[in-house]
Design a binder for these strands. Structure first.
Lengths: 197, 197
DNA sequence: CCTACCGATCGGTAGG
DNA sequence: CCTACCGATCGGTAGG
């Protein structure tokens, strides 16, 4: 029972995630969030210091979730070849989106509404994250496993395709998260491997 | 000289495209658009009937541009195999984005701010557009040229990767539109072709 | 295309 | 967590 504050705060973030993803940050008012939680608009400010603060909390947590999942995928696939390491990274990314599409979706599309300093911080983290993809692609090319490609272009191509999942994934859809991960991992690996027919 | 009205209207749409893409539709005010054109906020209404009307004009024109480009690509690659038809479609899509990233970017990300009726109309057209990709993939699979894949998943994967270009393309960047089209066409075709090593 | 103006809503604060 | 309230800004209209 001593943990009412963090729970309340989290409920606000979760509701905000859902609304930000559905309508966008700028089109969602503080009163929209409050109303969805049966609160008065001004009452939200007992728990948060500003609207942007809520967005930042969501984006920061989402970024950490992606990073942690990628760390685990990298550790558990460390001894595999580049193809299996790329597949593990893709699977981790898909799993994070499927586990909380609202959180991931806001991170992917709404970070531009942050203040310049925070936006820069997010861009730096996003670039470091994309670098994981580039590094595996470079490794795979060096090992002769992947065909020669512009690694930056290939990494961006794959990562934007993965992020697109946050735009269309709905729980209970035709495919389970695991099946989607199967498909996406295969498509991503093929993207960097030559057609040898 | 008799063509002042359409030119003026178009200048408003172009400025709105740039601002909507940079900050998003909801975060851009009618006065922002007017100010960028050295007009008073209310003066815009001599040329447009509402803010949403401007968004609709942009989205509708962008959709038509993509459709026309895809029609031409389909016509000129009609006699090729599925791989060359997919490559032609990808090249057309990339060219439309590179020719006007603001227009394409607003179409891709801001259509959800349209009224429900217009949003539905856009969704229908987007689905028909994506169906072009699915149809080629199905054809290629039937011909044994493409490896067995879920066509809907593969089409979405490729199309979201292509649309991601609108998020990062900047004129005068490291690669010309043509080189980007080369890379994207190859990556897209690989995505649906098996690795036979 | 401008001035003047409208009601509504915005994010946020004061004070309990 | 509420009531009451703040100045600023929103999309849009009237009337020239």
């Amino acid at each position: 029972m001593a943990t009412e504050a963090p729970t309340r705060r989290r409920a606000i973030e979760d509701m905000a995630s859902a609304l930000f993803r559905e309508r966008g940050y700028a089109a969602t008012s503080v009163r929209d969030i409050a109303r969805a939680l049966d609160l008065q608009g001004a009452s939200l400010y007992a728990h948060v210091t500003s609207k942007e603060d809520v967005l930042w909390a969501i984006v920061d947590r989402a970024a950490s979730t992606f990073e942690t999942a990628a760390d685990r995928a990298a550790a558990s696939s460390r001894d595999g070849d580049a193809a299996s390491r790329l597949a593990a990274l893709v699977r981790a990314h898909v799993a994070v989106i499927a586990a909380d599409p609202e959180l991931a979706g806001v991170f992917i599309t709404e970070w531009r509404h942050l203040s310049p300093a925070r936006r820069d911080a997010v861009l730096t983290r996003r670039d470091a994250y994309e670098e994981r993809f580039r590094a595996i692609i470079v490794d795979g090319m060096a090992a002769g496993l992947f065909s020669p490609t512009d690694p930056a272009i290939a990494a961006t191509f794959v990562l934007t395709a993965l992020n697109g999942l946050a735009g269309w994934y709905r729980p209970g859809g035709r495919l389970t998260p695991d099946r989607i991960a199967d498909h996406y991992a295969e498509l991503a690996v093929r993207t960097v491997t030559e057609d040898h027919r």
